[in-house]
Design a protein around this nucleic acid. Sequence first.
DNA 1: TTTATTGTTCGTATTTTTGCGAATAAGATT
DNA 2: AATCTTATTCGCAAAAATACGAACAATAAA
Lengths: 105, 105
Amino acid sequence: MPEALDENQALATYAQALSHPVRLAIIRRLAEQSVCFHGNMAAVLPVAPSTLSQHLKVLKDAGLIKGEIDPPRVRYCLNTAKIKEIKELFDIFLEYALQGGVENC
Amino acid sequence: MPEALDENQALATYAQALSHPVRLAIIRRLAEQSVCFHGNMAAVLPVAPSTLSQHLKVLKDAGLIKGEIDPPRVRYCLNTAKIKEIKELFDIFLEYALQGGVENC
DNA sequence: TTTATTGTTCGTATTTTTGCGAATAAGATT
DNA sequence: AATCTTATTCGCAAAAATACGAACAATAAA
């Protein structure tokens, strides 16, 4: 692994998307498929509707979720392909971090 | 996985630590064991020494790295146990996110 | 003891993130 | 057409993250 600067940037972006408890909670909800609608999540998560929309936007911009209009509601779901990709990236990165195996201090 | 709010908080904290390219670069360097000293990294990374110290502090506070004084320098290295733990956490979380397997939209 | 070397901490400025209510949009319902 | 439901965008405020130079330790070397 020479430098991987682009990969660092991509990883940082995904880590950013995962760096808020509410966003992680959203992902869990969507994984359970119990609630997929904004209003549904708003009822459970401790944030205002507008705040929830912002978090959904962050996840959407990062590609982790998709949204589909199902009038008058919006159904959200996970982008499993992307999440698989992210899982790979994190796995490879963290494995690389461990590979040396030597504790210098 | 009922709610796992604490786990969300822990995950979010680790994700936060990993959400900056320079911090990821630091981790890669330490994994390579090629450079373990502040000055050494400062020469390679595109940030001022004081900024580097801040990033090192973030990583240290999150538990990902350890620092040991080796006068007049400070030797840094990865906390492999913690990184292993983080790898587990991310792996479990992302696997859980994929487990449903159904694309609703 | 003076002087270098190495890093950190402090003070500050800038940018980004987070959060919320109000206003808005878009479509269904009456 | 008027209204209701649902969710987003806007405007703003507060908090956190980022970055840097200057000032400050702490130790080694002269």
